[in-house]
Amino acid sequence: MTTTADLQLVKRMNRSVLLRLLRAQPGLSRARLAGESGLTKSTVSLLVRELIDEGWLSEAGATVADGLGRPSTPLQIDVGVRALMGVEIAVETVRLVCMSLQGEVLHSQSHDLTDGSPAGVCAQVARMAAAAHAKLQQLGLQLSSIGVCVPGAVDDCTGVVRFAPNLGWRNVSLLPALEKAFAAVGLPGVTVQLQNDADAAALGEYEFASSVGQEGEDPLIFVNCDVGVGAGVVLNDRLFTGAQGMAGEIGHTILQLDGPLCSCGRRGCAEAFFGSRVLEREGADLPRAAAFFGVLLQNLWVTFNPRAIVLGGKACADHKGFAQAAFECMKRHADDAGMPAPDLRTARYGELAPAVGAAALALHEYLRPLQPDAKARRARAAQVLAAT
């Protein structure tokens, strides 16, 4: 027997199909949507009306003729109703962006991190978010979600930051603290999500690609080279985070036995060779650091065989030629193997890449209803804990 839950899931799936089609091909009519999606015209008409009423879609002002000469109304993602907010908690800085559904930066701000304790960070993020929310209200926009990212391993089932050595955090229950801080400053009760910074940045590059929903860049790897070094991996149209959120912690892969001391307590980690603080030291050997970086990129390439590798972070922004030298090193490794290297480029949103990706978190889940969303994952984790 069909249940109500089954019908609701089918409905969410059908809505997501229409939204993804219109993100990739703006201007499709209802009839074209029916043809592209395989849904009936009546189903498409009903879902389109709901999506318009909820501020996801809008109609163009003028009709156009379809292939048979009949008038039809082009549809598009409505960028005038909903907005997404993303926050990056970095080691020294907090960055915040507000994004349209199509990836336009509507507002951004950046402040030095004033208090690195979890409570201090939550309070600062909440103040910045409240100010940004006021800006959105002035623009007549509705805040749909808030995403936050941190430089460490995040268990996205529980909202716990497992390991963030450059912040001095271990097993910090950050997501509930953020939700409490947002409520304290009067922010609306929207979805709040937490993710690793490199994972978020990878998602921003993927979700807000120049041709949106561009599965042509799957798999995609984003390497964030800041004080710490991390990688985000999009694989099979979703983030690959590992069993406990530790996937992509490449800054703590060991490149040289008994090498320089790393912040994690081990020696020879990638971060100890080309983290931004290492490169800022007097007498830093940038060519050698770029060579080590190129080795790490080649290791990622042969592990995941991505279509694209994107570089971002302070080390790449502050040291001109560093990213290019690492790319050239990796290309030499590819040439030696007689294989074509993946597409190599720097971050589309520059230093805002992790914050932009954090803003994309809820949108990414909304467009993929078969994946358990953040709320469902947390509820399941709570049940497991209660049973043990």
Rank of each mutant, 00 (worst) to 15 (best):
residue 211 S to F: 14
residue 246 M to G: 15
residue 170 R to F: 12
residue 229 V to G: 02
residue 175 L to I: 05
residue 168 G to N: 10
residue 207 E to F: 07
residue 241 T to P: 00
residue 269 C to R: 07
residue 276 S to M: 06
residue 156 D to G: 07
residue 279 L to G: 00
residue 257 L to H: 13
residue 194 L to H: 05
residue 289 A to C: 06
residue 165 P to L: 12
residue 289 A to R: 01
residue 181 A to G: 02
residue 266 R to C: 09
residue 239 L to Y: 02
residue 203 L to I: 06
residue 160 V to A: 09
residue 182 F to M: 11
residue 237 D to Q: 15
residue 260 P to S: 12
residue 228 G to P: 01
residue 155 D to E: 15
residue 196 N to R: 11
residue 262 C to L: 11
residue 192 V to D: 01
residue 204 G to C: 10
residue 203 L to D: 00
residue 212 V to P: 02
residue 181 A to P: 00
residue 238 R to D: 10
residue 290 A to N: 00
residue 227 V to G: 00
residue 176 P to C: 13
residue 250 I to G: 00
residue 288 R to Q: 09
residue 189 G to T: 05
residue 279 L to T: 00
residue 162 R to N: 15
residue 245 G to F: 07
residue 160 V to E: 11
residue 183 A to I: 03
residue 281 R to G: 04
residue 272 A to L: 05
residue 248 G to R: 09
residue 188 P to H: 14
residue 162 R to P: 01
residue 215 E to H: 09
residue 163 F to H: 13
residue 158 T to Q: 11
residue 232 G to S: 09
residue 225 C to V: 15
residue 243 A to C: 10
residue 261 L to E: 13
residue 208 F to E: 06
residue 214 Q to Y: 07
residue 172 V to F: 08
residue 216 G to L: 15
residue 214 Q to S: 13
residue 245 G to S: 13
residue 281 R to D: 01
residue 257 L to I: 13
residue 205 E to Q: 13
residue 208 F to H: 07
residue 160 V to C: 14
residue 260 P to Q: 12
residue 283 G to F: 04
residue 227 V to E: 10
residue 239 L to I: 06
residue 163 F to P: 00
residue 156 D to V: 15
residue 156 D to C: 11
residue 243 A to I: 12
residue 280 E to L: 10
residue 242 G to I: 07
residue 183 A to P: 00
residue 273 F to K: 02
residue 168 G to S: 14
residue 176 P to R: 14
residue 261 L to R: 14
residue 289 A to H: 01
residue 207 E to D: 14
residue 171 N to A: 14
residue 160 V to S: 08
